[in-house]
Design a protein around this nucleic acid. Structure first.
Lengths: 241, 241
DNA sequence: TTGCAAACATACATCCGTGTATGTATCCAT
DNA sequence: ATGGATACATACACGGATGTATGTTTGCAA
């Protein structure tokens, strides 16, 4: 079925393609059987290759995991940047748009959903994945810093209560999203993730002094769909595969 | 060092004690190295025994995991029941007290904290732990049902907005707690878990129509310490070991 | 064209974990 | 006291995963 079956030394683009095939297979098997229980043989088999190919492209299983994380994060950061560019208006709108954008990606982009499932439910955060873990925690820090800055802007603009702790708020918002995501991935049929994330963060924002009407007036209808379209476009661009 | 070193056939109470030693060792090693990477040999070694003892008391590693879950859940349910008995007054106070009680246990009871760490960060939710997973999801459902009932009471008492979806609210609250717990366990030094959970849920409750002053008036000071004391008493009772 | 290195496949050695079977010493009931 | 069951320890058989070493084919540069 494949053009070349027992050949070697493909061109650079072909090699990159097989690398992506390995990543795709790893994403699938990791999601199905968990990171620890999957062998490199299964991954290679899933990609229609042998362990030799896997060991050529990656040092070991955890190097593969890091590569998977990177492949997932890059388009997500692009989607964030797109939202930044789109909603220059005010900070609170950007915050809402980003939350909804992330939820949209998790629900509608299989790759993002799979990766969230793998890192939240199918992988053990132990020393073996120290490299991945360092990257994950580092990227999380970056995201927290960014959101904290947004909260500071929102406070300065009088959109949230004056005495809000921006760093604490970033942590709380991050916790809300990941917690709901965790439960949704455990039982996806139980509730509508996008709906619940939006409602939960809106309620929380009201508790932080946000205008209760602002959500319905400016974000929920026009901006939400715009953000979703931006995210979808970014997803399509990233899914060139 | 142990009284009996190469003996056999202990009395029933002695056998129960070794069973607990195995559970303690498993809790420790699971938390340090993750569930999948730990062998039954390491657990037995940690308990000063051999694999034979482990296989006598438990069918396999995942049966051990289920037993660990049970040992952790029972005192937690007891703490909940204690809060129910203590704060008969109104539903909203009970909700706040339960949230704070859980946070208190997670932070101050090592066993609860270890178990949260194992199940959130150190274990892969795959088919192999189907038995444990079924129990976990089932217990989670019970908890959600219970909290939804509390929310219905609070709505009926006019403490929250009339159009609140109690089931959705239970899911959101659960997500908030677990999400913050997840992040706190990843980097415990980053923020104060109890403080953040309390603040976050209070803000969220305000967004659901709760009286912003109610938290400061009735719960934060007197009830909070009472709930903590109840939880600590329950913890001590449960930690008979 | 030739030769080197890329891009894999194959083969090998090693270790580790599991499950079970068997041994053994003690408690307990009769 | 004594046989059986309990509460383990020990021994064995087995598969399976990892990492590396080696082979092999091909693209590409000089």
């Amino acid at each position: 079925m494949p053009a070349t079956h027992t050949m070697a030394r493909k061109t650079k683009t072909e090699a990159l393609e097989t690398r992506n095939q390995i990543l795709d297979a790893a994403e699938k098997v990791f999601g199905e059987r968990g990171v620890a229980r999957t062998s490199l043989h299964e991954i290679a088999e899933g990609a229609g290759l042998t362990r030799g190919a896997v060991y050529w492209h990656f040092a070991d299983k955890y190097d593969l995991l890091s590569a998977l994380w990177e492949r997932c994060l890059l388009p997500l950061e692009a989607a964030f940047a797109a939202i930044d560019a789109e909603h220059v208006e005010d900070a609170l709108t950007r915050i809402r748009a980003k939350v909804r954008g992330v939820a949209d990606r998790i629900v509608h982009d299989p790759r993002t959903r799979n990766m969230m499932g793998i890192f939240l439910l199918r992988c053990e955060m132990v020393d073996e994945i120290a490299a991945s873990r360092q990257r994950i925690v580092g990227d999380r820090d970056d995201c927290l810093q960014q959101m904290a800055a947004e909260f500071r802007s929102a406070v300065a603009a009088g959109q949230l209560r004056k005495d809000l702790d921006a760093d604490a708020a970033a942590i709380e918002l991050h916790g809300i999203i990941d917690g709901l995501c965790y439960h949704w991935l455990l039982e996806p049929s139980r509730f509508d993730f996008e709906q619940r994330v939006a409602a939960c963060t809106d309620a929380w924002l009201i508790g932080q002094g946000a205008d209760p009407l602002a959500g319905r007036r400016r974000v929920t209808r026009p901006t939400r769909s715009a953000a979703a379209q931006m995210a979808k476009k970014a997803a399509r661009r990233a899914s060139v595969r």
